[in-house]
């Protein structure tokens, strides 16, 4: 295994582990306010300082990782499943239904979905429960993120349906379910897996963007996007460089996810 791959995997595992055990690892609760220590610089007590409400930045970063690292894969799973179903259905169906499915996929793809996300999210009341806001945000991402993947799955399924080995299997008299589960599916699975791993970082970023605009996960629940909002004022970066920590973590995680990608996608 290449060193970079090991490094990427290790980093992700550690981050996932830390975010899962946030209750024990984080020095403070994410919503706990220390009114006597507002906008503190890093110290032993607050390794990354505190924010404008006197909350520990490191603890919020750790809890925020949980939201992003756990929910992005779930949303990616949802989007990949939808894409798989639609892609497969289009390749199995007759020419008419296939065209209909592909056209609607294209249409779905042409929708300005960032705008749509914003609209959908803005329609929700401002006092939405933090947990509900998380669920809704990622549900929306999952529901909107499938078309490109569906296209890829459809193309691959089409290719497989014309493969010589499938014809050979039919010539051997194999049953329909054998053809499907033993010949088509094993060849389709790597594509879906690769797509899943492409969507995870995309969704992490999408959530960060939405929350940055105040339309993602709602306060006091932290997410990487809402933590990035502190960077809105570039001047602050000079006086308080530690507030850039969430941005650095996001970049590291995305880089690591892309680092793990080829290994997962390239396997036959």
């Amino acid at each position: 295994m290449k060193l970079s791959l090991r490094l990427a995997r290790g980093t992700l595992l550690i981050l996932a582990g830390v975010s899962l055990t946030a209750e024990w690892v984080a020095p403070h609760h994410y919503a706990e306010q220390f009114r006597e220590a507002i906008n503190e610089p890093p110290s032993w007590r607050f390794p990354l300082g505190t924010d404008g409400l006197g909350r520990d930045r490191l603890s919020r970063l750790i809890y925020g990782a949980r939201v992003s690292l756990l929910l992005a894969p779930l949303a990616a799973g949802l989007a990949t499943s939808l894409a798989g179903l639609i892609g497969i259905a289009s390749s199995l169906s007759g020419p008419w239904l296939e065209r209909l499915l592909l056209v609607s996929t294209d249409l779905w793809m042409t929708l300005p979905w960032v705008f749509l996300l914003l609209t959908a999210r803005a329609l929700l009341p401002l006092d939405t429960e933090p947990f509900a806001s998380v669920t809704i945000t990622f549900l929306l991402l999952g529901l909107l993120g499938w078309p490109a993947t569906a296209r890829i799955v459809a193309a691959r399924a089409q290719q497989i349906s014309q493969a010589t080995y499938l014809l050979q299997a039919r010539a051997c008299g194999e049953r329909r379910h054998q053809l499907w589960f033993r010949h088509v599916w094993p060849n389709l699975r790597p594509v879906l897996l690769a797509q899943f791993w492409v969507l995870v970082p995309a969704f992490i970023l999408a959530e960060a963007n939405l929350s940055f605009l105040g339309l993602g996960v709602s306060e006091p629940l932290p997410s990487w996007g809402s933590l990035l909002r502190d960077l809105e004022n570039p001047g602050a970066l000079w006086t308080q460089p530690w507030i850039a920590a969430p941005a650095v973590v996001v970049v590291i995680v995305i880089a690591c996810l892309h680092g793990v990608l080829p290994e997962t996608g390239g396997r036959q």
């Binding site: 493969a163 010589t164 080995y165 499938l166 014809l167 050979q168 299997a169 010539a171 033993r182 010949h183 094993p186 060849n187 036959q268």
Partner: peptide
């Protein structure tokens, strides 16, 4: 039936 090229007639994933 044995199809033409043995390498493509066998399923690469099996």
């Amino acid at each position: 039936l044995i199809l033409q090229s043995p390498m493509t007639a066998l399923n690469p994933a099996l």
